[in-house]
């Protein structure tokens, strides 16, 4: 079974007690992805929340007429795939393994169960996701500023 400490290292679960982490441990799966392997594809239905236990993952998107561009590099302790679970919408970007990486994941059903079963646990998890979203919105808005300036050069 996945170690508690491995989960606690992830920014989503830093505030979880041992008992709460155990609820996640029993529901989570794990796997290793080799360099360059596609983990989730842009436009596909999102079915998992992924946690990076070790290694890095590259978030890419298709730019019309220009090919694939990396828009974010995720590191150990980051997570991805949650947007599609929350919105029930297709995945907005592709994610590839950058080097060898070990991932943990919660399937949609397990994620929904975790959110539905215990409200204090759900709120902890939702708060952590909200904070991560807020940061992503900030980072993306700041990138727009940077690209605007580059576009003018």
């Amino acid at each position: 079974m996945i170690a508690r400490e491995e989960l606690r290292k992830n920014r989503l679960f830093g505030e979880f007690s041992d008992a709460e982490l155990d609820m996640v441990r029993v529901a989570a799966d794990e796997g290793t992805y080799e360099d360059g392997r596609l983990i989730i594809a842009e436009g596909s239905p999102g079915e998992r929340l992924y946690l990076i236990a070790s290694g890095k993952c590259s978030v890419t998107t298709e730019i019309s007429g220009a090919g694939t561009e990396e828009i974010r590099l995720l590191d150990e302790g980051d997570f991805f795939g949650e947007m599609s679970l929350i919105e029930s919408a297709p995945v907005s970007a592709s994610v590839y393994a950058r080097g060898r990486c070990r991932l943990l994941w919660l399937e949609r059903k397990a994620f929904d169960r975790l959110i539905a079963e215990d409200m204090p646990v759900a709120n902890k998890l939702l708060r952590a996701i909200v904070l991560a979203f807020c940061e992503r919105v900030r980072v993306t808005a700041a990138k727009i500023e940077g690209y605007y300036k580059m576009g003018k050069l």
Binding site: I71, M83, E87, T140, I144, Y148, G151
Partner: peptide, 22 residues
Amino acid sequence: LLIESNRLRQITVRLREFLAKI
């Protein structure tokens, strides 16, 4: 989460537009 997720998607679309221009 629904609100911020939607806004993140919209900002990402703008980001793509800028990237495409560059």
